[in-house]
């Protein structure tokens, strides 16, 4: 069997998703041997830039260079994988769309030739993406099993249940029940509820589930005493661009949510 030609790249981001893969300390030397690792500029000096079977891309588009790199990579690979929250949702940097301009305009560069800002956006806003591995950063085992699936010729499993499923399985105390603004019910799981396991409410870094009940989530948070601004800010911190309906739902007159059953 010929080894698939693989590249790991990063555009604007924090390298956390690439590190999450590298931090598979027991498996990293073997798994990188099972593929033809043609590029990984973070840890390799010699890197190809075309003719890939699979490209894992970390980061969001925040500059013209990012956009050029993304388009080039898309053209040079059969499969493009969005690796991590920045690539999948735009993550915290894309929250800039929802904050007041006056909050950040003092930080903006004067327009200079070599520094070219682009609206912060996830990569599927610009090109077709074949698979998403969400999370800030993704669960390191998840990246591993994704690669294993591809190597075995299986279609990688994309998790579809909310965080609550794993959180319950892990026997955690429900943080919503004790008044924390936990976004677990509307957030894509697959993370093994790693934040709520540590007593920290889910902020939605893996983005919303397809069948989320946003109305009910908002109703519950309001009942817990959180105001509209807080709810919007929280939901938009990691995945605002993937919740285009939020403004409409939160402003809807009357409440069309189903009654909230505490148990």
């Amino acid at each position: 069997m010929t080894k698939p030609k693989v590249g790991f790249f990063g555009i604007t981001g924090c390298a956390g998703c690439l590190l999450s893969f590298i931090f598979n300390e027991d498996e990293i030397l073997d798994i990188t041997n099972l593929v033809n690792l043609k590029a990984f500029p973070f840890i390799k000096e010699v890197n190809a830039d075309d003719n890939f079977d699979i490209v894992f891309l970390e980061g969001l588009v925040a500059s013209k260079e990012d956009l050029e790199t993304l388009k080039k990579l898309r053209g040079n690979t059969k499969i493009l994988v969005s690796l991590g929250a920045c690539a999948c949702t735009g993550c915290v940097p894309a929250y800039r769309h929802f904050t007041l301009k006056e909050n950040y305009e003092h930080l903006l560069y004067e327009k200079r030739e070599r520094i070219r800002d682009v609206e912060p956006t996830p990569i599927d806003a610009h090109v077709k993406v074949d698979y998403f591995i969400p999370g800030c950063p993704p669960n390191k085992k998840e990246i591993l099993s994704f690669i294993k699936d591809l190597l075995l010729g299986k279609k990688p499993r994309q998790y579809t249940d909310p965080v609550c499923v794993e959180c319950r399985r892990n026997n955690n105390l429900c943080l919503l029940d004790i008044g924390k603004p936990c976004l677990g019910p509307i957030t894509l799981g697959g993370c093994n509820s790693v934040c709520t396991n540590g007593g920290f409410e889910c902020w939605g870094c893996r983005g919303p589930t397809k069948d989320m009940n946003l109305d009910l989530m908002i109703k519950v948070l309001k009942e817990k005493g959180f105001d509209d601004k807080f709810i919007k800010d929280r939901m938009r911190t990691f995945a605002g661009l993937k919740l285009p309906v939020l403004e409409r739902v939160i402003n809807a007159k009357g409440n069309n949510a189903k009654p909230h059953n505490k148990d």
């Binding site: 690439l18 999450s20 925040a62 915290v92 940097p93 904050t99 909050n103 950040y104 930080l107 682009v118």
Partner: peptide
């Protein structure tokens, strides 16, 4: 030559107990 992310602007208007969760995203390592 990294794109800019303006974290210091993004935490303005947020609560004191939210700063660390947002600014940790500045860096993975």
């Amino acid at each position: 030559v990294e794109g800019s992310r303006y974290f210091e602007g993004l935490v303005r208007g947020r609560h004191y107990y939210e700063a660390h969760e947002m600014t940790s995203r500045i860096c993975g390592i």
